[in-house]
Design a protein around this nucleic acid. Structure first.
Length: 211
DNA sequence: ATCCCGAGGG
DNA sequence: CCCTCTGGAT
């Protein structure tokens, strides 16, 4: 796929998507960090259902640490991987207080040093909280990038590197949100909604119904 | 490569 | 019933 085609794809995604936003409910950078950690292998709806009452009762790292692992498990039991996540979130909150004054650090190394936080989560925070031009490649974006031919790669890191080379400068900060929304609602895993897709004509996948 | 883990979609 | 969901750590 050539670059003018790619530029056209980003232009259309920009035009067809609403203002960039996450679908996770949160009020502070800390809450976003917790919500993203909880979202691993879980749906955003499920995460929001759990975090709404959680954040109402325990909005801060101090409060989550006080709540403790077992207490947190009760809030997030309906999410997959809840034991690991409860441990990670309480420990992560403790480390935030210990190392960063309870604030979410604007620093990739510091973020990835927190339990439960890997490259993908760090990229979401850097982009959404700090406005950096990072692209967090999740399952949606990985599928979209490969399927369409936009930025094919064998693993998540390769797709991320290719996307970073290919995204036009003016879309760097918002590209992540448009890509993920398109992957989630249009270029769906099982049943892609090609009739409603604004880039079908540029897509290498358009005639197939399955990968 | 495998485990952690449960809910909901198709 | 099988698969997927905004992964990360071992």
């Amino acid at each position: 796929m050539n670059n003018s085609k790619r530029a056209e794809i980003f232009a259309r995604l920009a035009a067809s998507n609403p203002a960039p936003t996450t679908e996770l409910d949160y009020k502070t950078p800390y809450q976003l960090l917790v919500a993203v950690v909880l979202s691993a292998q879980a749906t955003d709806k499920g995460v929001n259902r759990a975090t709404r009452p959680l954040f109402r009762a325990h909005p801060t790292p101090e409060s989550i640490v006080a709540l403790g692992i077992e207490g947190l498990e009760e809030y997030i039991q309906s999410i997959g991987l809840y034991r690991t996540k409860a441990r990670n979130v309480v420990e992560l909150s403790r480390l935030l207080l210990e190392r960063h004054g309870g604030e979410v650090p604007h620093d990739r190394e510091a973020l990835e040093a927190l339990p439960g936080v890997g490259r993908k989560t760090a990229n979401v925070i850097l982009n959404t909280v700090f406005g950096e031009p990072t692209i967090a490649v999740d399952t949606h974006i990985f599928r979209l990038a490969n399927r369409t031919g936009l930025a094919p790669g064998k693993d998540v890191r390769e797709v991320e590197d290719r996307l970073n080379k290919v995204v036009p400068a003016e879309y760097k900060v918002n590209a992540h949100h448009w890509l993920i929304l398109h992957g989630r609602y249009i270029c769906k895993a099982r049943t892609p909604d090609c009739p409603r897709c604004v880039i079908v004509d540029l897509c290498e996948f358009k005639d197939k119904t399955r990968e």
